[in-house]
Design a binder for these strands. Structure first.
Length: 434
RNA sequence: GGCCUCAUCGUCUAGCGGUCUAGGACACCAGGUUCUCAUCCUGGUAACUUGGGUUCGAGUCCCAAUGAGGUCACCA
């Protein structure tokens, strides 16, 4: 059987989106499940949109999520290849030079002209465009949709293959590279489906064998439409900086658009590769569900050891927080946080004296707190105070909680007082009693 | 608007002609554990878009309508 070779081909044009990352996971699993090869290819053919450090960022992220590429390519270093292919197409009569001004899609809206004016001018320089034939049928079987998709070439436009600056467009580069790199399965976003007939024609005219091609679903925004960077953070970097673990992002994202036969929910990359099956691909677009991501994140946080968490929380700690104290706090908040950035909301009171809203206190709070002060001064367990004074346990601890932390929802208050220390605890109680 | 794709609980999904009085997960609700919150454990509410076919039999196959998404650049 032919070796499976897939590629992840992002553009260094901005921060990576979770949809792109998901494509990488799928492509990786598709190859590795069959002991195939995974190739990383940077598609930097639009020099206007390229961002500084984009390539390094892609490599960093792919590595962070545990994907190892077997080969690495950068399209801007392969320009001669594309130029040759484009010129070959002109020679064989399937492409032509064009010197028209670039169209501005934003201004013209949807275009109706499929055929280019330069088609038969016999120009010998400029951009190179595909000469699309009239009234032919092009088709392929999509391995994700498991369905044949076809077009009449009358609806396909004379796409630009080589720009006048010598760089290829996606349409040319993707075909030339996938062939040159012996890619067996092309996996890409749904948004590429409408331009597939262009690629099919290029494959045909270049005499290349067409690989398996599959189009993935788009992850949708809860408001409807494609995920946009404006609504919520959907860039991978953004999620990471909010305190989501790579394990959680991975698990969440692979399950948006793919599902195992046995309803299993928890996957590591290794599990995913092992269980991967093409028939698990979904056909309809999933909606980005923050609650489920939060659940995965909480789950994976709880899987971590306290010392691992100490490192993980590092970026989210208040100014000057010392490691010894943080280490004591971690067991108390581990079951409570959904994101690493929740450290502040749950444990901020350890580092900064809270403003206590007296309205949160019960009517007997003065008695409760006085007795608590006495107990702490004498090093007596706070657990004994309610029974010795016939206080309702819940009421006593709630007043103590509010006085110490300023909130009704906190980690266990007894342990918190111990971590906070005798001095500081007494200081806070007395301040409320003043 | 043309073309393309899709359609099971609120969300992610299982289901690939009879085993579906439709299963799981998140969320939600209720109960238990508990000094609060949370974790954890129990239980519960909740779905086959509509209309035609095909078939002994349709969530599962076909067609249409409707709805949703994508695309129509010398961007990817």
């Amino acid at each position: 059987m032919k070796k499976i070779r897939t590629r992840f081909a992002p553009s260094p044009t901005g921060s990576m989106h979770i949809g792109n990352l998901r494509t990488a996971f799928y492509a990786y699993a598709l190859a590795k499940h069959e002991d195939g090869e995974f190739i990383l290819r940077v598609e930097d053919t639009d020099k206007k949109r390229e961002v500084e450090g984009g390539v390094a960022d892609i490599k960093d992220l792919v590595t962070l999520f545990g994907l190892k590429w077997d080969e690495f390519y950068i399209q801007s270093e392969r320009l001669a290849l594309y130029k040759k292919a484009a010129e070959d197409l002109v020679k064989s009569g399937h492409a032509f030079y064009c010197q028209c001004e670039a169209k501005n899609a934003k201004r013209e809206g949807f275009s109706s002209d499929k055929r280019d004016r330069c088609r038969d001018k016999g120009l010998t320089s400029g951009a190179i465009k595909l000469k699309v034939p009239e009234n032919e049928t092009v088709k392929f079987r999509d391995f994700v949709l498991r369905e044949e998709v076809s077009w009449n070439t009358n609806v396909v436009f004379d796409a630009t293959l080589l720009k006048s600056d010598g760089f290829p467009t996606y349409h040319l580069a993707v075909v030339v590279d996938d062939h040159d790199m012996s890619i067996s399965h092309v996996l890409r976003g749904h948004d590429w489906l409408p331009s597939t007939p262009i690629h099919l024609l290029v494959y045909k005219y270049l005499g290349y064998e067409v690989p398996e091609i599959g189009h993935l679903t788009d992850i949708l925004d809860p408001e409807g439409g494609k995920l946009s960077k404006r609504k919520g953070s959907t860039s991978v970097r953004g999620l990471l900086s909010e305190g989501y673990l790579p394990e959680a992002i991975f698990n969440f994202v692979i399950l948006a658009g793919w599902a195992p036969k046995d309803n299993r929910e928890l996957f590591t990359l290794e599990d995913f590769v092992k269980n991967f099956d093409i028939s698990g691909f979904q056909k309809s677009n999933p909606i980005f569900n923050r609650e489920k991501l939060d659940w995965f994140n909480g789950h994976y946080i709880r899987q971590k050891s306290d010392s691992e968490l100490l490192d993980l929380f590092d970026r989210f700690l208040p100014e000057g927080a010392d490691a010894v104290k943080v280490k004591e706090i971690i067991p108390l908040i581990k079951d409570r946080v959904k994101k690493l950035s929740d450290f502040g909301p749950f444990a901020g009171f350890f580092f900064e004296s809270p403003k206590v809203d007296k309205k949160l206190l019960g009517k007997n709070y003065r008695d409760h707190l006085k007795k608590a002060v006495e107990a702490i001064e004498k090093n007596i367990s706070l657990d004994r105070v309610p029974e010795e004074n016939s206080y309702k346990i819940g009421d006593f601890f709630m007043d103590l909680r509010v006085a110490i932390t300023g909130s009704r929802f906190t980690p266990p208050i007894n342990e918190s007082v111990k971590i906070l220390g005798k001095e500081e605890s007494l200081r806070r109680l007395r301040e409320v009693l003043e």
